[in-house]
Amino acid sequence: MLQQINYIFRKRLPQYNSIEELFGAIQAKLKDKVEIDTQELKLSGGSPVVILKNILSFRKKSPSQINHITGDVNYMALVTGKKSVLTIHDIGSILKGNTLKRIYLKLFWFTLPAIFVNKITVISEFTKAELCKVIPFASKKIEVVYNPVHSELSYCPKEKNSVCPNILLIGTKPNKNIERTFEALSGITCKLTIIGKLTENQLKLLELYKLEYKSMFQVPYVDIIQAYKNCDLVLFASTYEGFGMPIIEAQAIGRPVITSNIGAMKEVAKDTAYLVNPYNVEEIREAVLSITSNVEMQNKLISKGRINVERFRIDKIVEDYLTIYKDVINA
Protein backbone atom coordinates (compact mmCIF):
# COMPACT_ATOMS: atom_id res chain seq x y z
CA MET A 1 0.00 0.00 0.00
CA LEU A 2 1.38 3.40 -1.00
CA GLN A 3 1.93 6.11 1.57
CA GLN A 4 -0.65 8.90 1.30
CA ILE A 5 0.67 12.45 0.99
CA ASN A 6 -1.83 15.30 1.27
CA TYR A 7 -0.51 18.52 -0.26
CA ILE A 8 -2.08 21.67 1.17
CA PHE A 9 -2.02 24.70 -1.13
CA ARG A 10 -2.97 28.33 -0.62
CA LYS A 11 -5.98 29.58 -2.58
CA ARG A 12 -4.67 30.01 -6.10
CA LEU A 13 -4.61 33.53 -7.47
CA PRO A 14 -3.80 34.39 -11.10
CA GLN A 15 -0.80 36.56 -10.21
CA TYR A 16 0.86 33.93 -7.99
CA ASN A 17 1.86 30.60 -9.52
CA SER A 18 5.34 29.72 -8.31
CA ILE A 19 4.41 27.37 -5.45
CA GLU A 20 1.74 25.67 -7.51
CA GLU A 21 4.10 25.14 -10.45
CA LEU A 22 6.83 23.84 -8.14
CA PHE A 23 4.80 21.25 -6.28
CA GLY A 24 2.70 20.37 -9.31
CA ALA A 25 5.90 19.21 -10.99
CA ILE A 26 6.97 17.30 -7.87
CA GLN A 27 3.57 15.61 -7.60
CA ALA A 28 3.78 14.49 -11.23
CA LYS A 29 7.09 12.75 -10.50
CA LEU A 30 5.81 11.20 -7.25
CA LYS A 31 2.50 9.82 -8.52
CA ASP A 32 3.84 6.27 -8.97
CA LYS A 33 5.64 6.23 -5.61
CA VAL A 34 3.03 7.64 -3.20
CA GLU A 35 -0.72 8.18 -3.13
CA ILE A 36 -1.28 11.89 -3.75
CA ASP A 37 -4.11 14.03 -2.47
CA THR A 38 -4.43 17.80 -2.86
CA GLN A 39 -6.32 20.35 -0.81
CA GLU A 40 -6.57 23.97 -1.97
CA LEU A 41 -7.70 26.37 0.72
CA LYS A 42 -10.87 28.35 0.12
CA LEU A 43 -9.68 31.79 1.23
CA SER A 44 -6.60 33.93 0.62
CA GLY A 45 -5.03 36.43 2.98
CA GLY A 46 -3.74 36.32 6.51
CA SER A 47 -6.40 37.89 8.70
CA PRO A 48 -7.55 36.04 11.85
CA VAL A 49 -10.93 35.35 10.20
CA VAL A 50 -9.29 33.84 7.10
CA ILE A 51 -6.95 31.73 9.22
CA LEU A 52 -9.83 30.42 11.33
CA LYS A 53 -12.04 29.56 8.34
CA ASN A 54 -9.20 27.82 6.50
CA ILE A 55 -8.24 25.84 9.59
CA LEU A 56 -11.85 24.73 10.13
CA SER A 57 -12.06 23.59 6.50
CA PHE A 58 -9.28 21.03 6.98
CA ARG A 59 -10.33 17.40 6.95
CA LYS A 60 -7.92 14.53 7.54
CA LYS A 61 -8.85 11.57 5.32
CA SER A 62 -6.57 9.05 7.02
CA PRO A 63 -4.76 9.04 10.40
CA SER A 64 -1.64 7.72 8.65
CA GLN A 65 -1.47 10.41 5.94
CA ILE A 66 1.40 12.88 5.82
CA ASN A 67 0.30 16.48 5.35
CA HIS A 68 2.68 18.68 3.37
CA ILE A 69 1.96 22.40 3.71
CA THR A 70 3.46 23.75 0.51
CA GLY A 71 3.94 27.39 1.50
CA ASP A 72 2.33 30.73 2.39
CA VAL A 73 -0.24 29.08 4.68
CA ASN A 74 2.09 27.92 7.43
CA TYR A 75 -0.62 28.34 10.09
CA MET A 76 -2.33 25.18 8.80
CA ALA A 77 0.21 23.27 10.88
CA LEU A 78 -1.97 24.01 13.89
CA VAL A 79 -4.42 21.33 12.71
CA THR A 80 -2.47 18.98 10.45
CA GLY A 81 -0.81 17.06 13.29
CA LYS A 82 2.68 15.77 13.94
CA LYS A 83 2.86 13.85 10.68
CA SER A 84 3.34 17.09 8.83
CA VAL A 85 5.97 18.75 6.65
CA LEU A 86 6.06 22.51 6.23
CA THR A 87 7.90 24.20 3.36
CA ILE A 88 9.02 27.77 3.99
CA HIS A 89 10.14 29.69 0.91
CA ASP A 90 11.55 32.84 2.47
CA ILE A 91 11.55 34.94 5.64
CA GLY A 92 12.09 38.54 4.62
CA SER A 93 8.93 38.96 2.57
CA ILE A 94 6.78 37.87 5.54
CA LEU A 95 8.39 39.53 8.54
CA LYS A 96 7.79 43.13 7.56
CA GLY A 97 5.43 45.92 8.57
CA ASN A 98 4.79 47.48 11.96
CA THR A 99 5.75 45.81 15.25
CA LEU A 100 2.31 44.37 15.97
CA LYS A 101 2.04 42.88 12.48
CA ARG A 102 5.51 41.33 12.74
CA ILE A 103 4.62 39.73 16.10
CA TYR A 104 1.38 38.34 14.63
CA LEU A 105 3.10 36.94 11.53
CA LYS A 106 5.99 35.46 13.49
CA LEU A 107 3.54 33.68 15.80
CA PHE A 108 1.25 32.16 13.15
CA TRP A 109 3.74 31.69 10.30
CA PHE A 110 6.80 30.48 12.21
CA THR A 111 6.68 29.92 15.98
CA LEU A 112 3.45 27.93 16.34
CA PRO A 113 3.84 25.94 13.10
CA ALA A 114 7.39 24.98 14.11
CA ILE A 115 6.06 23.49 17.36
CA PHE A 116 3.49 21.29 15.63
CA VAL A 117 5.21 19.93 12.50
CA ASN A 118 7.73 17.11 12.32
CA LYS A 119 9.89 18.56 9.52
CA ILE A 120 10.46 21.98 8.01
CA THR A 121 11.98 22.24 4.56
CA VAL A 122 13.55 25.42 3.23
CA ILE A 123 14.76 26.14 -0.28
CA SER A 124 18.30 27.35 0.43
CA GLU A 125 21.00 27.35 3.08
CA PHE A 126 20.54 31.13 3.18
CA THR A 127 16.87 30.73 4.15
CA LYS A 128 17.79 28.06 6.71
CA ALA A 129 20.23 30.44 8.41
CA GLU A 130 17.58 33.16 8.49
CA LEU A 131 14.92 30.81 9.84
CA CYS A 132 17.18 29.46 12.58
CA LYS A 133 17.41 32.99 13.93
CA VAL A 134 13.62 33.28 14.02
CA ILE A 135 12.88 29.83 15.54
CA PRO A 136 16.16 28.60 17.06
CA PHE A 137 14.32 26.00 19.15
CA ALA A 138 13.31 24.18 15.95
CA SER A 139 16.67 24.24 14.17
CA LYS A 140 16.96 20.42 14.20
CA LYS A 141 13.69 20.13 12.29
CA ILE A 142 14.91 22.29 9.40
CA GLU A 143 16.33 20.70 6.23
CA VAL A 144 17.31 22.21 2.89
CA VAL A 145 15.59 20.91 -0.23
CA TYR A 146 16.34 23.06 -3.25
CA ASN A 147 13.70 24.05 -5.76
CA PRO A 148 13.84 21.91 -8.90
CA VAL A 149 14.23 23.36 -12.34
CA HIS A 150 11.04 22.77 -14.32
CA SER A 151 11.21 19.73 -16.57
CA GLU A 152 9.67 21.73 -19.44
CA LEU A 153 12.78 23.91 -19.58
CA SER A 154 15.34 22.51 -21.99
CA TYR A 155 18.39 23.88 -23.74
CA CYS A 156 17.44 26.11 -26.66
CA PRO A 157 20.45 27.86 -28.27
CA LYS A 158 19.96 31.28 -29.81
CA GLU A 159 22.03 33.36 -32.19
CA LYS A 160 23.96 36.02 -30.28
CA ASN A 161 22.72 39.61 -30.56
CA SER A 162 25.19 42.30 -29.51
CA VAL A 163 23.50 45.09 -31.49
CA CYS A 164 20.23 45.32 -29.56
CA PRO A 165 19.97 42.45 -27.06
CA ASN A 166 16.66 41.41 -25.54
CA ILE A 167 17.12 41.57 -21.76
CA LEU A 168 14.62 39.68 -19.61
CA LEU A 169 13.61 41.04 -16.18
CA ILE A 170 11.58 38.78 -13.89
CA GLY A 171 9.42 40.41 -11.22
CA THR A 172 8.54 43.98 -10.32
CA LYS A 173 8.17 43.88 -6.52
CA PRO A 174 10.45 46.15 -4.44
CA ASN A 175 13.00 43.38 -3.77
CA LYS A 176 13.45 42.84 -7.53
CA ASN A 177 15.43 46.09 -7.63
CA ILE A 178 13.96 47.04 -10.96
CA GLU A 179 14.34 50.79 -10.44
CA ARG A 180 18.12 50.54 -10.11
CA THR A 181 18.12 48.14 -13.04
CA PHE A 182 16.35 50.69 -15.24
CA GLU A 183 18.89 53.34 -14.25
CA ALA A 184 21.76 50.95 -15.05
CA LEU A 185 20.33 50.29 -18.51
CA SER A 186 19.90 53.97 -19.37
CA GLY A 187 21.73 54.74 -22.61
CA ILE A 188 22.35 51.08 -23.46
CA THR A 189 20.81 49.95 -26.75
CA CYS A 190 18.55 47.07 -25.78
CA LYS A 191 14.98 45.83 -25.60
CA LEU A 192 13.45 44.83 -22.28
CA THR A 193 10.96 42.07 -21.63
CA ILE A 194 9.48 42.57 -18.17
CA ILE A 195 7.40 39.92 -16.42
CA GLY A 196 5.28 41.47 -13.68
CA LYS A 197 2.84 44.32 -13.16
CA LEU A 198 4.59 47.68 -13.46
CA THR A 199 3.83 50.45 -10.98
CA GLU A 200 3.21 54.04 -12.01
CA ASN A 201 6.67 55.00 -10.78
CA GLN A 202 8.30 52.19 -12.76
CA LEU A 203 6.45 53.28 -15.89
CA LYS A 204 7.68 56.85 -15.37
CA LEU A 205 11.25 55.60 -15.02
CA LEU A 206 11.01 53.62 -18.24
CA GLU A 207 9.91 56.80 -19.97
CA LEU A 208 12.56 58.90 -18.22
CA TYR A 209 15.39 56.57 -19.26
CA LYS A 210 13.90 56.10 -22.76
CA LEU A 211 13.92 52.31 -22.48
CA GLU A 212 12.15 50.19 -25.08
CA TYR A 213 10.16 47.47 -23.37
CA LYS A 214 7.38 44.90 -23.50
CA SER A 215 5.61 43.93 -20.28
CA MET A 216 3.79 40.71 -19.44
CA PHE A 217 1.49 40.17 -16.47
CA GLN A 218 -0.55 37.19 -15.29
CA VAL A 219 0.62 35.01 -18.17
CA PRO A 220 0.73 31.19 -18.26
CA TYR A 221 4.01 29.47 -17.60
CA VAL A 222 4.34 28.47 -21.25
CA ASP A 223 4.60 32.17 -22.12
CA ILE A 224 7.31 32.65 -19.52
CA ILE A 225 9.26 29.78 -21.05
CA GLN A 226 8.97 31.46 -24.43
CA ALA A 227 10.22 34.73 -22.92
CA TYR A 228 13.35 32.90 -21.75
CA LYS A 229 13.85 31.47 -25.23
CA ASN A 230 13.41 34.88 -26.88
CA CYS A 231 15.84 36.75 -24.63
CA ASP A 232 19.60 37.15 -24.94
CA LEU A 233 20.31 37.80 -21.27
CA VAL A 234 18.51 37.47 -17.93
CA LEU A 235 19.13 40.33 -15.50
CA PHE A 236 18.07 39.41 -11.98
CA ALA A 237 19.82 41.74 -9.54
CA SER A 238 17.42 41.39 -6.60
CA THR A 239 18.11 42.72 -3.14
CA TYR A 240 16.49 39.69 -1.50
CA GLU A 241 15.41 36.20 -2.57
CA GLY A 242 14.64 33.00 -0.72
CA PHE A 243 16.01 31.09 -3.71
CA GLY A 244 16.07 32.77 -7.14
CA MET A 245 14.31 30.52 -9.66
CA PRO A 246 15.03 32.75 -12.70
CA ILE A 247 18.73 31.93 -12.32
CA ILE A 248 18.35 28.22 -12.98
CA GLU A 249 15.43 28.64 -15.38
CA ALA A 250 17.55 30.88 -17.61
CA GLN A 251 20.52 28.52 -17.34
CA ALA A 252 18.38 25.54 -18.30
CA ILE A 253 17.30 27.34 -21.48
CA GLY A 254 20.90 28.37 -22.16
CA ARG A 255 21.03 32.09 -21.40
CA PRO A 256 23.71 34.03 -19.52
CA VAL A 257 22.62 35.44 -16.16
CA ILE A 258 23.48 38.54 -14.17
CA THR A 259 22.44 38.21 -10.54
CA SER A 260 23.31 39.51 -7.09
CA ASN A 261 26.38 38.61 -5.07
CA ILE A 262 24.37 38.24 -1.86
CA GLY A 263 22.17 35.71 -0.07
CA ALA A 264 20.48 32.83 -1.85
CA MET A 265 21.29 34.17 -5.31
CA LYS A 266 25.01 33.77 -4.71
CA GLU A 267 24.37 30.30 -3.29
CA VAL A 268 22.27 29.17 -6.26
CA ALA A 269 24.46 30.69 -8.99
CA LYS A 270 27.90 30.20 -7.43
CA ASP A 271 30.44 31.09 -10.15
CA THR A 272 28.13 30.28 -13.06
CA ALA A 273 26.61 33.77 -13.39
CA TYR A 274 27.98 37.32 -13.49
CA LEU A 275 27.59 38.45 -9.87
CA VAL A 276 27.02 42.12 -9.01
CA ASN A 277 26.33 44.30 -6.02
CA PRO A 278 22.57 44.97 -6.46
CA TYR A 279 22.89 48.37 -4.78
CA ASN A 280 25.58 49.55 -7.21
CA VAL A 281 24.04 50.88 -10.43
CA GLU A 282 27.39 51.22 -12.20
CA GLU A 283 28.29 47.63 -11.39
CA ILE A 284 25.03 46.38 -12.92
CA ARG A 285 25.62 48.55 -15.97
CA GLU A 286 29.19 47.29 -16.41
CA ALA A 287 27.97 43.69 -16.19
CA VAL A 288 25.44 44.23 -18.99
CA LEU A 289 28.01 45.92 -21.23
CA SER A 290 30.63 43.26 -20.54
CA ILE A 291 28.36 40.34 -21.39
CA THR A 292 26.58 41.81 -24.40
CA SER A 293 29.86 42.83 -26.04
CA ASN A 294 31.72 39.59 -25.39
CA VAL A 295 30.50 36.43 -27.13
CA GLU A 296 33.22 34.34 -25.47
CA MET A 297 32.00 35.41 -22.03
CA GLN A 298 28.42 34.60 -23.02
CA ASN A 299 29.38 31.11 -24.15
CA LYS A 300 31.38 30.51 -20.97
CA LEU A 301 28.49 31.55 -18.73
CA ILE A 302 26.03 29.46 -20.75
CA SER A 303 28.25 26.36 -20.47
CA LYS A 304 28.80 26.80 -16.73
CA GLY A 305 25.11 27.47 -16.23
CA ARG A 306 24.11 24.23 -17.92
CA ILE A 307 26.38 22.34 -15.52
CA ASN A 308 25.00 24.23 -12.53
CA VAL A 309 21.41 23.29 -13.42
CA GLU A 310 22.21 19.61 -12.84
CA ARG A 311 22.20 20.30 -9.08
CA PHE A 312 18.52 21.18 -9.35
CA ARG A 313 17.14 18.39 -11.53
CA ILE A 314 13.71 17.31 -10.35
CA ASP A 315 14.58 13.61 -9.87
CA LYS A 316 17.10 14.54 -7.19
CA ILE A 317 14.66 16.89 -5.45
CA VAL A 318 11.93 14.23 -5.46
CA GLU A 319 14.30 11.75 -3.78
CA ASP A 320 15.09 14.37 -1.13
CA TYR A 321 11.38 14.75 -0.34
CA LEU A 322 10.84 10.98 -0.27
CA THR A 323 13.60 10.69 2.31
CA ILE A 324 11.92 13.35 4.44
CA TYR A 325 8.53 11.60 4.18
CA LYS A 326 10.14 8.34 5.33
CA ASP A 327 11.69 10.16 8.29
CA VAL A 328 8.25 11.53 9.26
CA ILE A 329 6.68 8.06 9.05
CA ASN A 330 9.41 6.57 11.23
CA ALA A 331 9.49 9.39 13.78
Rank of each mutant, 00 (worst) to 15 (best):
I5S: 01
Y7L: 02
R10E: 09
R10D: 04
R12V: 15
Q15R: 03
E21T: 01
F23N: 02
I26G: 06
I26W: 00
K33M: 00
V34I: 12
Q39S: 05
V50I: 08
I51C: 12
K53I: 10
K53H: 15
I55Y: 00
I55E: 06
I55V: 10
L56A: 11
S57G: 11
S62V: 09
H68A: 05
H68R: 10
I69W: 03
T70P: 10
T70V: 15
T70H: 11
M76H: 06
M76R: 13
A77M: 09
A77Q: 07
V79M: 11
G81Q: 06
G81C: 05
K83M: 08
S84R: 02
D90T: 06
D90E: 13
S93W: 07
K106N: 13
K106T: 10
L112Y: 05
A114K: 12
F116V: 15
F116A: 15
I120C: 00
V122H: 01
T127V: 14
V134Q: 11
F137R: 08
K140N: 15
V144R: 00
P148T: 03
V149W: 02
H150R: 08
S151D: 04
E152I: 01
C156R: 15
P165V: 04
I167T: 12
I167G: 02
P174F: 01
N175M: 06
F182N: 02
A184C: 10
L185G: 09
G187L: 07
G187Y: 07
L192A: 03
L192V: 00
T193W: 03
K197W: 14
T199I: 08
E200C: 04
N201V: 06
E207N: 15
K214V: 03
I224M: 15
I224E: 10
I225N: 02
L233W: 15
L233P: 13
A237H: 03
S238M: 04
S238W: 01
Y240S: 09
E241M: 05
G244F: 12
E249Q: 11
P256V: 03
V257Q: 08
I258D: 06
T259P: 00
I262T: 12
E267M: 13
E267P: 15
A269V: 06
K270L: 09
T272N: 01
A273H: 04
L275T: 10
N277Y: 03
N280D: 11
S290V: 10
S293I: 06
N299I: 12
K300P: 05
I302T: 13
S303R: 15
S303T: 12
G305P: 10
R306Q: 14
N308S: 01
F312V: 02
F312H: 01
K316H: 01
I317M: 02
I317T: 09
I317E: 06
V318Y: 04
E319L: 06
T323N: 14
D327K: 07
V328W: 01
V328G: 01
V328R: 05
V328S: 00
A331H: 08
